[in-house]
Amino acid sequence: MSCLDIRGATITTPDLQTESLSEFDHGWSVVVWNDPINLMDYVVYVFQKVLHMSQSQATKHMMEVHQNGKSLVAHENHEKAEHLVHQLQSYGLTATLQSL
């Protein structure tokens, strides 16, 4: 968004180019998929460590992965989401990037 000051009145107008880029850049999800090998406690630990979740948040997402087969654990811009996928994969979790 950009701001213009005309005769004392502040008019806010959308900067179209920035807005469309921003919209694209915020449309990425990080999804963690279920697998039969990773321990529940391990997944909770990794969510806390990488995603800075509380113990209860991490446990909730771990259970979602376990019961529903996947959990959307973050919604970020492209760069941050990609970084989180790398981090989660470094611990052996099946994490993917998904465009919304």
Partner: peptide, 26 residues
């Protein structure tokens, strides 16, 4: 410590993949 977690996990995942271990096997 995190490297030890990651390394032991790599080994667990590779074993599971190479021996086609599924949920029921666990």
């Amino acid at each position: 410590a995190d490297a030890l977690l990651q390394i032991t996990n790599d080994r667990r995942l590779l074993l599971a993949m190479n021996h086609e271990i599924q949920e029921k096997d666990m």
